[in-house]
Design a protein around this nucleic acid. Structure first.
Lengths: 198, 198
DNA sequence: TTATAAAAAATGACCAGTCGTATTAAAAAA
DNA sequence: TTTTTTAATACGACTGGTCATTTTTTATAA
């Protein structure tokens, strides 16, 4: 009984550490030993928790996106805040956090799409799933904004969510090399405060 | 005298091979030996041509973007084609090529931004330079489109070029995991055929 | 001969993954 | 309830192989 709890705790530890190290150094740039040492779990134990580095990475992807989904849901469910403002508040919160983090990391999903998208079907599926969950939520926000008359209705909420998610991925890359949140802000300005407005 | 020519040829070979392998497998996913074997240059010779893997990668970045710049310039200088159509033609050509390539690779710049943006200042500088050269050219096309009355003038050509380049990076990532050119097409539709039109 | 570049060989660090064993818990038998 | 058996998990040393880079040797050119 105690055993199964410890197992869950160790899995969680590894996933947490995996998120932060894969963000900072990428998949091929991060050794398992590095992760294991950081959480003080011996090498041999890793394969009791995960089948391989690749499937570990796929789990890390979902573990990464979960908190973002919670955070976005929180904004969308805040009373007396319209859908468009909720999205703007959410992205502003992200920008604040990224700035506090000195523009490091960006988005694990985007980074891994670039690094592994072509070569790991397992990770590709995880990335696809994660990004779809995320995009659906943004679409909901835009849909709400449309019903409230704040977001244009001549474009579908789906295609706007698509554009927003893709552009956001792009500006996060840009942020990394410019070491500035300016690209993030101009993304929000162009789309949420520009193109999408009714 | 003959030697210095051979040196240039070998450098070129390595850069060409570097572009294709770094595209396919990323920086940490590609070993120098792999590149050297492919062009039949002995391992010990590499450091006669490049100071390190890192500076090699930085040179690969510029080597990668050069042909894109030539291609885009060609479209922009085609007689009797307006700026906006030139951009559309250029991106359609890219889409065609990416589809023929089975959506593999995407953009080396974007991939390396994600993988190395945080950790290699040398590559970061090369990426920044390359993307700026590219974006300036797109800005020129939009500027021409504005002068021709086809592109809206209430937004600056610079900020539109910014948005287009960033979104394009994002959709290339998306293409990789969706294995489809649909994201690319909807990017062009949304921006060049939508938001940017006057 | 001297200088320079190319290439081979060697370096130590690190890689993901495996193996046998030790430890523990749960299940079965007494 | 107590003892024995069986199974699951934990663990560190080890595997073959690859990594980027350096050192040493060989070949070429001036």
């Amino acid at each position: 009984m105690v055993r199964v709890f410890k197992k869950q705790i160790n899995r969680e530890k590894l996933l947490d550490q995996g998120v932060s190290m894969l963000m900072a150094q990428g998949y091929h740039g991060t050794g398992l030993k590095e992760i294991l040492d950081a959480v003080q779990i011996p090498k041999g134990s890793f394969y009791n928790y995960f089948g391989s580095k690749e499937v570990f990475c796929a789990e890390v992807v979902q573990h990464y996106i979960d908190p973002f989904i919670v955070q976005l849901q929180r904004h969308l469910q805040t009373p007396n805040v319209d859908g468009l403002s909720a999205l703007k508040n959410y992205f502003n919160e992200l920008i604040f956090e990224l700035e506090a983090n000195e523009f490091k990391g960006g988005c694990l999903l985007g980074n891994l799409m670039g690094e592994l998208g072509d070569n790991s079907d397992i990770c590709r599926a995880a990335l696809q799933s994660a990004v779809n969950q995320y995009q659906d939520l943004i679409k909901e926000g835009l849909l709400k904004g449309q019903q409230e008359g704040l977001v244009r209705t001549d474009l579908s909420a789906g295609s706007m969510a698509d554009l927003l998610v893709n552009t956001w991925q792009g500006v996060l890359l840009r942020m990394k090399i410019e070491k500035s949140v300016a690209p993030l802000q101009s993304c929000c300005d162009s789309l949420l405060d520009g193109y999408f407005k009714s």
